[in-house]
Deep mutational scan, measured.
Amino acid sequence: NITNLCPFDEVFNATRFASVYAWNRKRISNCVADYSVLYNLAPFFTFKCYGVSPTKLNDLCFTNVYADSFVIRGDEVRQIAPGQTGNIADYNYKLPDDFTGCVIAWNSNKLDSKVSGNYNYLYRLFRKSNLKPFERDISTEIYQAGNKPCNGVAGFNCYFPLRSYSFRPTYGVGHQPYRVVVLSFELLHAPATVCGPKKST
């Protein structure tokens, strides 16, 4: 009989979030998941669920729940959905087409922007091929755009693959930082360890 609440607040209220290319994953298990708490945590810009209804979450049980978190800019949030393409979905964080879970995003301009520009958040701009779903690539190998090998040196047709967002508070919403948490629900042929409040007794 599990009584402890799932530590969603640790994920959502973390002081620092990860850069999207090096997104963070927390496995959540053996706890009571009260998803209604999430609705009250922040004024969400996005709370979209796929393959599951957000209002039914509190009635369900899962084997595992994974919470992935990272920062992107406002106009990239739409890429965090099944079947999307674009720089983020292709080279940084890719959801599977049959994704079961929820994408939660909110504006973090007050936390993640600086007047002089916050350069701490990076994204991958160049990659030889698209990522597979939930693949994480943290390599910093020089990207070869031409025929000549780069031998690890940046220059003509040889690019450092990561680029930094420079978040400034005066930017338009599309270029402001957004914190994203992706909850993916895993149903294996194994005992369910993460249940809503109704199912945990």
Rank of each mutant, 00 (worst) to 15 (best):
D59Q: 12
L60C: 08
T201Y: 02
F44E: 01
V37I: 08
A33L: 12
Y35S: 11
G196I: 07
H189V: 11
N109V: 05
A192Y: 06
A105W: 05
E10T: 13
Y35T: 10
L183I: 12
T100R: 01
S116F: 15
L5S: 04
A190M: 03
N147D: 08
P197T: 09
G83C: 12
N157G: 03
F12L: 14
K48N: 05
F44T: 02
S164C: 14
N120R: 02
S184Y: 10
V180C: 14
L41K: 11
S166T: 00
T15Q: 06
Q144E: 11
N130I: 01
L5A: 01
P197S: 11
D75A: 07
L5Y: 04
F156N: 07
K132H: 04
K199F: 03
S116H: 14
T140N: 00
R168M: 09
D98K: 06
K199A: 01
T193K: 05
P54T: 13
L38V: 03
N151C: 11
E10L: 13
S53T: 02
H175F: 03
K114Q: 15
A42K: 04
G83Y: 12
P7N: 06
K48R: 03
N58P: 00
A190Q: 05
K132N: 06
L111I: 04
N64R: 01
T201F: 05
H189R: 01
R27Y: 09
G196V: 06
S53H: 14
R73M: 10
D97A: 10
K26I: 11
Y178W: 04
F160W: 11
G174E: 02
L41E: 09
A145T: 04
Y39P: 09
E76H: 13
L125R: 13
N109K: 15
A192K: 02
T201M: 01
Q144P: 14
I142Y: 01
E141R: 12
K198T: 02
L41R: 00
N147R: 02
P191D: 01
I88V: 14
G83K: 07
T140Q: 00
N147V: 03
S129V: 03
T3D: 02
S166L: 14
R16D: 02
G117D: 15
W23F: 14
V194A: 05
L111M: 01
A42N: 03
N120I: 13
Y178V: 14
I142V: 13
G174C: 11
S116Q: 04
S129W: 14
N58Q: 06
L187K: 00
K198M: 01
F44N: 10
K132Y: 12
T46D: 01
L5Q: 01
G174R: 08
A33F: 10
R16I: 11
N87K: 10
G174D: 04
Y178F: 01
F45R: 02
S200P: 00
T100I: 08
I2A: 04
T193W: 14
T85N: 14
K198W: 05
K114T: 15
D90K: 08
S164E: 11
N151L: 05
F160I: 04
T63Y: 06
G152Q: 14
N58H: 09
S116V: 15
V65C: 09
A190F: 12
F156P: 03
V37C: 10
F126N: 07
T46C: 13
F45I: 05
K199C: 04
V37E: 09
K198N: 04
T46M: 00
N64F: 10
F160M: 08
F156G: 02
S36Q: 10
T46R: 08
P149S: 09
L95V: 07
K128F: 14
A190P: 01
N147I: 07
R27F: 07
P43T: 11
T55Q: 10
P149H: 12
S113A: 09
K56G: 05
K199V: 00
T170Y: 15
N151P: 14
E186D: 10
F126Q: 04
L111E: 10
L60H: 11
K56S: 10
G174W: 02
N147Q: 05
T55L: 10
T170N: 14
D59T: 00
E141S: 06
F185W: 05
N118T: 15
K128Q: 08
R78I: 07
L111C: 13
N120L: 10
N64Y: 03
N120C: 14
V173F: 02
P54H: 04
Q84V: 05
Y39I: 06
G155R: 14
R163K: 03
H175N: 01
L187A: 12
A42E: 05
F45K: 08
P7K: 02
L41A: 05
I2R: 01
K56L: 07
Y121F: 13
N87I: 09
T63L: 13
S29P: 14
N151E: 10
N64H: 00
P197L: 02
F44Y: 06
L60N: 08
Y119V: 15
T3G: 09
T85E: 12
P43R: 05
P43E: 03
A154S: 01
F156I: 07
N40Y: 09
R27D: 11
G196E: 07
N13Y: 10
L5D: 07
K26Q: 07
L111F: 05
S184W: 12
I28F: 11
Y178T: 15
L125F: 02
R16C: 05
Y91L: 13
N87F: 03
G174Q: 08
Y39Q: 04
N120Q: 10
K128I: 13
L41Y: 03
F62N: 10
V173C: 08
F126S: 02
N130D: 12
F160Q: 00
S200C: 03
S139E: 14
L122S: 03
A190L: 04
Y91F: 06
T63G: 02
D9P: 13
E186T: 06
P191S: 01
D59K: 08
L5E: 05
T46W: 10
T63S: 01
K132I: 12
L187I: 00
N87M: 01
N130R: 00
S116I: 15
D9A: 04
P149C: 14
K56D: 12
S164V: 15
L60G: 11
K114H: 15
Y123A: 15
T55Y: 03
A42F: 08
S184H: 12
N87E: 12
T85I: 08
L187Y: 01
T55M: 06
F156K: 03
L125K: 01
D98N: 07
A18S: 03
F45C: 02
K148I: 10
T63M: 13
R27L: 04
N118D: 15
G196Y: 08
L111S: 15
K199Y: 00
V32H: 09
S116P: 15
S129H: 00
A190I: 10
A14N: 04
P169A: 15
T193M: 01
V194G: 06
P177A: 14
K110L: 05
V77L: 09
P197M: 09
A190N: 13
Y159W: 11
L122Q: 01
F62L: 11
R163T: 13
N120T: 15
S129N: 09
P7C: 02
I2N: 11
S29R: 02
A154R: 10
